[in-house]
Amino acid sequence: MEGSISQLGQYLGAGLACVGMAGAAVGVGNVAGNFLNGALRNPSAAAGQTATLFIGMAFAEALGIFSFLVALLLLFAV
């Protein structure tokens, strides 16, 4: 119970950093949704674009992973 202000800041900051993962979730959902949208309009072209889909998802997801990393750094490494 004698935790300091800096510890409070760490935990608050970690929680706030995790909000950034919501953005990644929106981004990944956006990528997948738009891919599905296009794929249903033109199913014959969809098979050739799965690589692009995964690249886009990876880029969108990486930023969420960064925010998760910031949260972990705040919790454990500061």
């Binding site: 990876a58 880029f59 997801e61 990486a62 992973i65 960064f66 990393l69």
Partner: peptide, 13 residues
């Protein structure tokens, strides 16, 4: 940076 942190972060998370 993103290439490495994406992999490690995903697995670790």
């Amino acid at each position: 940076v993103s290439h490495s942190i994406r992999l490690a972060g995903n697995v670790m998370a």
